[in-house]
Simulated assay, not measured.
Amino acid sequence: MYEQDFSKDVQVRTFRTLFLSDIHLGTRGCQAELLLDFLRHHQAETIYLVGDIIDGWRLRKKRFWPASHQAVMNLLLERGRQGTTIVYLPGNHDEFLRKSRKLRFGCVEFADDVEHVTAAGRRYLVIHGDQYDVVIQKAKWLAYLGDRFYVTALAMNTWLNIARRKLGMNYWSLGAFAKQHVKQFVNIIGQFENTVASDIRQRKLDGVICGHIHHATSRDMNGLHYLNTGDWVESCTAVGERFDGTLEIVRWAGSEQATTRTNHDREPVIAA
């Protein structure tokens, strides 16, 4: 049985809002232990679960649900029972939950997308993001094929990091490196971001907070604020809203190596 150790005093950072996506519970690549550590050190008045929280694609093929994955669900539900607002916006991997849209089950509210207003009054669309993915919408079979390649790459990454740990080195993501440096990945990410920004401009909103492509970033796109939450498979990132309305990307490498990414050429802190 999985048990969490809350006996030690920990420094907790409180946000007005936390945005988490692409956790992929039910897969071997899910960094559930790191997410539990992150949640232990972070509280929020509202938590948005921005899709692909549970990986229905993988669970349909083979059941994989260790105690740490159930512990993530239990902790989130416990936060909801304690008064945290929990909003679940299903993605393509947990699309079976889209039938629950605009409903509330216990302490969890379901919706396809929502408009979030920050403490500073700026309006953001919160949505998983697969709605902007041409492959998902037009050629889903290709998306399933891509998912199989992705699982293979994650398996390779697991063995790579076992070797790195034995050498005393920190976790390193092969997939994240490829997305930053391989031209094809960079082009796909750029197209996705431009498509999202175009829709947000038509909706006359100030920005968007989404997931789906497993690439965390915060950037200004000609006056629109584009935020991607990243994932809890490779990058272990979230988006946090401070009480003054500022939005930032939080990168988590464990409580002993905790870092908050706030100043980067592609990840500015923007008072929202």
Score class of each variant (00 low, 15 high):
2 Y>C: 10
3 E>L: 15
3 E>F: 13
3 E>N: 13
8 K>M: 13
13 R>H: 12
14 T>Q: 13
27 T>P: 14
28 R>F: 11
30 C>Y: 02
32 A>Q: 11
33 E>A: 15
34 L>W: 00
35 L>Q: 14
36 L>K: 10
43 Q>S: 15
46 T>M: 07
60 R>A: 12
62 K>C: 09
72 V>C: 06
80 G>Y: 08
81 R>G: 03
86 I>A: 01
87 V>Q: 06
88 Y>V: 05
89 L>S: 08
100 S>I: 02
101 R>L: 07
102 K>T: 04
103 L>M: 07
107 C>K: 11
124 Y>N: 00
126 V>R: 02
132 Y>R: 00
133 D>S: 07
139 A>T: 12
148 R>H: 09
151 V>D: 14
163 A>F: 07
164 R>M: 03
165 R>W: 03
169 M>N: 00
172 W>S: 06
175 G>R: 14
180 Q>Y: 07
185 F>W: 12
191 Q>W: 01
194 N>S: 11
196 V>D: 09
201 R>F: 10
201 R>D: 09
212 H>S: 09
214 H>I: 05
226 Y>L: 15
226 Y>H: 14
226 Y>I: 11
229 T>V: 14
234 E>K: 15
234 E>C: 15
237 T>C: 12
238 A>R: 06
241 E>G: 09
244 D>F: 01
247 L>R: 09
251 R>S: 11
253 A>D: 12
256 E>C: 00
258 A>H: 00
260 T>Y: 08
266 R>Y: 14
267 E>P: 07
